[in-house]
Amino acid sequence: MRTYLIDHEQNEIVFDITKTLVHSSELVEYEFCAIEENKVIDRQTIFLRKLAGSFFVSTDGKQWGKLAKQDLPSRVVHVDSVFNVFRGYKPSGLSGAGAGELKTQMPGKVVKILVNEGDKVIKGQTMLILEAMKMENEIKCGIDGVVRKIHVKNGDTLESGVLMMEVEE
């Protein structure tokens, strides 16, 4: 079974489960491989044991590490990247925002819009101020261009991934 891990910048890691061996109701052996550009670049056996209601994992069957109790997570985190987990399929329509599309990275409230439609803007210019978690975040432009469309107004409360502005090169 193929699993895709995709973060919000569309970085993708692909994994295959190539073997599942059930030793007992408490012990399973899996073989995973990591795939890049259709080539297997890494392969590893993982043992999983259920002990006192928790899962423990091991690469050698000797040293065991605990996994945090989880249901079926749709996300996994690695340090500063959050990956969405897609098992068995790769989602379509997840195409990345162009450099000229300003999308919210986290939910927040529009405090102040600093540009108008038709304005000439430069890369790195602050376009609007978004308040999230009691902090003001300056949202900067990714390219040089002209503001084509502003989709939000002052005071709007936005979810994550909302298109706020479009800039034309």
């Binding site: 890691i13 399973v28 899996y30 995973f32 990591a34 999983l48 996994l67 989880q70 997570p73």
Partner: peptide, 21 residues
């Protein structure tokens, strides 16, 4: 540095849950 083994371990947990362990 992305260590694949961390992802393998997390995915093993997901698989085990799916298998009803």
């Amino acid at each position: 540095t992305k260590k694949y083994s961390r992802f393998y371990k997390l995915l093993a947990g997901i698989e085990a849950k799916r298998m009803g362990m």
